[in-house]
Amino acid sequence: MTLSQRSLDHVKSASFIVLLFLAWEVSCVLFGISPIVLPPPSTVISTLIVQMPALWPHILQTLLTTMVGFLLGMVIGVALGAIVGVSRTAYNVAYPLLVGFSSIPKVAVVPIFVLWFGSGTLPAILTALTTCIFPIVVNVATGLATTEPEMEDVLKALGANRSQVFWNVSLPRTMPYFFASLKVAVTLAFVGTVLSETVAANRGIGTVMMMATASFDVPLAFAGLLALALLGILLYAVFAVIEQRICGWANRKQEFAMG
């Protein structure tokens, strides 16, 4: 029952997207909107296809930068999250700092990275890293810090030491939090990369879009947006599948609870 329910949801979601594009196309024609302001999706898609050979290196550049920043963010994020989550003191001390850090608009740190490292790939990687790291740290820390008190009592009464509690309970129960954060983090890393590329780089989708808007090639700018959206969806989907594989129990539990 749940399976057909889910495929039905997929169909609904796909038709919603198609409808949205249709509405966009139709209103462009109906209201005679100039392609300089808002190109119809047909133009955007054909531009994307026609320009693909020229766009491809930039797409690859953005993708690689994002993945490097994201992987670094994941490693550092897990380490920080583990430190913050395992010790209550670290949690209390570090949390305000993390919140403060996360509220800094990342666009503000790009010039600083450029100042330090020059323009190019390195500031883009660092921006991706700083953009995506916060949800990972918070989720890992939350997962580790919130073991059910009764479960902890049961284990302690049995004589379990800290590492036994960690391997048997804390780590597995953190997994769903961790993967949920990865899905979000990977799309955020994208935002960071493109942000940095639009400010200071000569390669990448961000740069292409900057140059396209500067020369009023609006369809190309939109093609860049479309490429970004598609890549974002792709990466999100990859991590959603991995998540489902590794901690499907968390989802099935929810499904059951919802009836």
């Binding site: 059910e148 479960m151 048997n168 597995p172 901690c247 129990w249």
Partner: peptide, 8 residues
């Protein structure tokens, strides 16, 4: 009272 069986 809460059985706390581990769901995984």
């Amino acid at each position: 009272q809460n059985p706390t069986m581990l769901p995984w």
